[in-house]
Protein backbone atom coordinates (compact mmCIF):
# COMPACT_ATOMS: atom_id res chain seq x y z
CA UNK A 1 0.00 0.00 0.00
CA UNK A 2 1.97 2.99 -1.16
CA UNK A 3 0.70 6.51 -1.58
CA UNK A 4 0.15 7.66 -5.11
CA UNK A 5 -1.19 10.82 -6.64
CA UNK A 6 -4.53 11.14 -8.41
CA UNK A 7 -3.89 12.00 -12.05
CA UNK A 8 -6.95 14.22 -12.13
CA UNK A 9 -7.04 16.31 -8.95
CA UNK A 10 -3.49 15.47 -7.71
CA UNK A 11 -4.80 14.48 -4.30
CA UNK A 12 -2.97 11.75 -2.38
CA UNK A 13 -4.40 8.31 -3.07
CA UNK A 14 -4.55 5.64 -0.42
CA UNK A 15 -6.29 2.31 -0.57
CA UNK A 16 -7.14 2.60 3.13
CA UNK A 17 -6.00 5.20 5.62
CA UNK A 18 -4.20 2.87 8.02
CA UNK A 19 -3.85 5.57 10.66
CA UNK A 20 -7.48 6.61 10.32
CA UNK A 21 -8.65 5.22 13.67
CA UNK A 22 -5.67 6.62 15.55
CA UNK A 23 -6.49 10.12 14.25
CA UNK A 24 -10.19 9.62 14.97
CA UNK A 25 -9.52 8.73 18.62
CA UNK A 26 -7.01 11.56 19.09
CA UNK A 27 -9.32 14.29 17.74
CA UNK A 28 -12.30 12.79 19.55
CA UNK A 29 -10.51 12.85 22.91
CA UNK A 30 -9.40 16.43 22.29
CA UNK A 31 -12.99 17.33 21.46
CA UNK A 32 -14.35 15.70 24.62
CA UNK A 33 -11.74 17.40 26.81
CA UNK A 34 -12.54 20.81 25.32
CA UNK A 35 -16.25 20.16 25.86
CA UNK A 36 -15.84 20.07 29.66
CA UNK A 37 -14.72 23.69 30.23
CA UNK A 38 -17.23 24.71 27.56
CA UNK A 39 -19.98 23.60 29.94
CA UNK A 40 -18.41 24.63 33.23
CA UNK A 41 -17.37 28.20 32.38
CA UNK A 42 -19.65 31.05 31.30
CA UNK A 43 -20.50 31.51 27.65
CA UNK A 44 -21.89 35.03 28.05
CA UNK A 45 -21.02 37.82 30.48
CA UNK A 46 -23.96 40.21 30.76
CA UNK A 47 -23.84 43.45 32.69
CA UNK A 48 -26.75 45.85 33.03
CA UNK A 49 -27.30 48.96 35.16
CA UNK A 50 -28.27 46.92 38.15
CA UNK A 51 -26.57 43.57 37.88
CA UNK A 52 -23.80 41.51 36.36
CA UNK A 53 -24.53 37.94 35.39
CA UNK A 54 -22.77 35.05 33.76
CA UNK A 55 -24.51 32.28 31.89
CA UNK A 56 -23.30 28.88 30.83
CA UNK A 57 -24.67 26.87 27.90
CA UNK A 58 -27.26 25.12 30.06
CA UNK A 59 -27.96 28.38 31.93
CA UNK A 60 -28.72 30.08 28.61
CA UNK A 61 -31.16 27.33 27.69
CA UNK A 62 -32.92 27.59 31.07
CA UNK A 63 -33.18 31.37 30.65
CA UNK A 64 -34.80 30.94 27.23
CA UNK A 65 -37.31 28.49 28.69
CA UNK A 66 -38.15 31.03 31.42
CA UNK A 67 -38.74 33.72 28.77
CA UNK A 68 -41.15 31.29 27.15
CA UNK A 69 -39.23 30.88 23.87
CA UNK A 70 -39.38 27.11 23.92
CA UNK A 71 -38.61 26.65 20.24
CA UNK A 72 -35.39 28.65 20.44
CA UNK A 73 -34.46 26.93 23.70
CA UNK A 74 -34.88 23.62 21.90
CA UNK A 75 -32.66 24.75 18.99
CA UNK A 76 -29.90 25.86 21.35
CA UNK A 77 -30.20 22.72 23.47
CA UNK A 78 -30.10 20.43 20.43
CA UNK A 79 -27.18 22.30 18.83
CA UNK A 80 -25.05 22.72 21.95
CA UNK A 81 -25.80 19.63 24.02
CA UNK A 82 -27.53 16.87 22.08
CA UNK A 83 -25.52 17.12 18.84
CA UNK A 84 -22.06 17.27 20.49
CA UNK A 85 -22.78 14.47 22.97
CA UNK A 86 -24.51 12.41 20.29
CA UNK A 87 -21.48 12.91 18.06
CA UNK A 88 -19.05 11.72 20.73
CA UNK A 89 -21.08 8.55 21.21
CA UNK A 90 -21.63 7.95 17.48
CA UNK A 91 -17.96 8.40 16.52
CA UNK A 92 -16.75 6.22 19.40
CA UNK A 93 -19.27 3.53 18.43
CA UNK A 94 -18.21 3.63 14.77
CA UNK A 95 -14.52 3.43 15.66
CA UNK A 96 -15.03 0.53 18.08
CA UNK A 97 -17.24 -1.40 15.65
CA UNK A 98 -14.60 -1.05 12.91
CA UNK A 99 -11.84 -2.15 15.28
CA UNK A 100 -13.84 -5.26 16.14
CA UNK A 101 -14.52 -5.87 12.44
CA UNK A 102 -18.20 -5.97 13.24
CA UNK A 103 -20.38 -6.96 10.29
CA UNK A 104 -23.55 -5.87 12.01
CA UNK A 105 -25.80 -3.37 10.27
CA UNK A 106 -23.30 -1.87 7.85
CA UNK A 107 -26.01 0.23 6.24
CA UNK A 108 -27.12 1.70 9.54
CA UNK A 109 -23.55 2.48 10.54
CA UNK A 110 -22.89 4.13 7.20
CA UNK A 111 -26.05 6.22 7.69
CA UNK A 112 -24.84 7.15 11.16
CA UNK A 113 -21.53 8.28 9.68
CA UNK A 114 -23.29 10.40 7.05
CA UNK A 115 -25.49 12.01 9.70
CA UNK A 116 -22.49 12.76 11.94
CA UNK A 117 -20.60 14.32 9.02
CA UNK A 118 -23.59 16.42 8.02
CA UNK A 119 -24.83 17.58 11.39
CA UNK A 120 -21.59 18.27 13.28
CA UNK A 121 -21.06 21.77 11.88
CA UNK A 122 -24.43 22.91 13.22
CA UNK A 123 -23.11 22.93 16.78
CA UNK A 124 -21.38 26.19 15.90
CA UNK A 125 -24.74 27.99 16.25
CA UNK A 126 -24.06 28.88 19.88
CA UNK A 127 -20.66 30.41 19.08
CA UNK A 128 -22.27 32.60 16.43
CA UNK A 129 -25.06 33.58 18.86
CA UNK A 130 -22.39 34.74 21.31
CA UNK A 131 -20.56 36.65 18.54
CA UNK A 132 -23.68 38.50 17.39
CA UNK A 133 -24.92 39.24 20.92
CA UNK A 134 -21.56 40.60 22.05
CA UNK A 135 -21.23 42.76 18.94
CA UNK A 136 -24.80 44.04 19.13
CA UNK A 137 -25.36 44.63 22.82
CA UNK A 138 -22.73 47.27 23.57
CA UNK A 139 -24.77 50.07 25.12
CA UNK A 140 -22.24 51.53 27.54
CA UNK A 141 -23.72 51.48 31.03
CA UNK A 142 -27.23 50.28 30.21
CA UNK A 143 -26.32 46.85 28.96
CA UNK A 144 -23.28 45.12 27.58
CA UNK A 145 -22.70 41.51 26.65
CA UNK A 146 -19.23 40.04 26.32
CA UNK A 147 -18.06 36.56 25.30
CA UNK A 148 -16.88 34.20 28.03
CA UNK A 149 -14.03 31.71 27.88
CA UNK A 150 -16.47 28.84 27.28
CA UNK A 151 -17.14 30.19 23.77
CA UNK A 152 -13.52 29.48 22.86
CA UNK A 153 -13.45 25.95 24.27
CA UNK A 154 -16.83 25.16 22.77
CA UNK A 155 -15.66 26.26 19.31
CA UNK A 156 -12.51 24.17 19.77
CA UNK A 157 -14.60 21.16 20.77
CA UNK A 158 -16.73 21.48 17.62
CA UNK A 159 -13.67 21.90 15.38
CA UNK A 160 -11.90 18.89 16.95
CA UNK A 161 -14.95 16.62 16.56
CA UNK A 162 -15.37 17.75 12.94
CA UNK A 163 -11.75 16.79 12.30
CA UNK A 164 -12.35 13.48 14.07
CA UNK A 165 -15.31 12.68 11.81
CA UNK A 166 -13.32 13.70 8.73
CA UNK A 167 -10.41 11.45 9.74
CA UNK A 168 -12.74 8.44 9.84
CA UNK A 169 -12.31 6.37 6.68
CA UNK A 170 -15.89 5.28 5.99
CA UNK A 171 -14.67 2.52 3.66
CA UNK A 172 -13.47 0.64 6.74
CA UNK A 173 -17.12 -0.06 7.65
CA UNK A 174 -17.48 -2.04 4.43
CA UNK A 175 -14.19 -3.90 4.69
CA UNK A 176 -15.36 -6.31 7.37
CA UNK A 177 -17.23 -8.57 4.94
CA UNK A 178 -14.43 -8.44 2.41
CA UNK A 179 -11.72 -9.82 4.68
CA UNK A 180 -13.95 -12.49 6.15
CA UNK A 181 -15.26 -13.80 2.85
Amino acid sequence: MQDTICKRCSGALQSRDTESLQKVWAWLLAGMIAYLPANLYPMLLTSTLTERSESTIIGGVVELVEYGSLGIAAIVFIASVMIPVGKFIAIAYLAISVQRRSMASQHERHKAYEVVEFIGRWSMIDVFVVAILSALVQLDTIATINPGIAAVSFALSVIFTMLSAQAFDSRLIWDADRTQQ
Binding site: I75, F128, I132, L133
Partner: peptide, 30 residues
Protein backbone atom coordinates in the same frame (compact mmCIF):
# COMPACT_ATOMS: atom_id res chain seq x y z
CA UNK B 1 -8.36 21.41 -11.19
CA UNK B 2 -6.76 22.55 -7.94
CA UNK B 3 -9.30 25.37 -7.58
CA UNK B 4 -12.29 23.05 -7.95
CA UNK B 5 -10.75 20.51 -5.59
CA UNK B 6 -10.22 23.25 -3.01
CA UNK B 7 -13.80 24.50 -3.34
CA UNK B 8 -15.11 20.99 -2.65
CA UNK B 9 -12.71 20.29 0.23
CA UNK B 10 -13.70 23.50 2.00
CA UNK B 11 -17.42 22.72 1.81
CA UNK B 12 -17.88 21.54 5.44
CA UNK B 13 -15.97 24.58 6.78
CA UNK B 14 -18.19 27.15 5.11
CA UNK B 15 -20.74 28.03 7.79
CA UNK B 16 -22.67 31.02 6.45
CA UNK B 17 -26.00 29.19 6.83
CA UNK B 18 -25.25 28.28 10.45
CA UNK B 19 -24.38 31.92 11.15
CA UNK B 20 -27.80 33.04 9.91
CA UNK B 21 -29.55 30.57 12.23
CA UNK B 22 -27.33 31.83 15.08
CA UNK B 23 -28.36 35.40 14.26
CA UNK B 24 -32.02 34.41 14.43
CA UNK B 25 -31.52 32.90 17.89
CA UNK B 26 -29.66 36.05 19.03
CA UNK B 27 -32.45 38.29 17.67
CA UNK B 28 -35.04 36.46 19.74
CA UNK B 29 -32.85 36.72 22.84
CA UNK B 30 -32.48 40.49 22.42
Amino acid sequence: HKAFGLAERLRPWSMAEIFIVGVTVALIKV
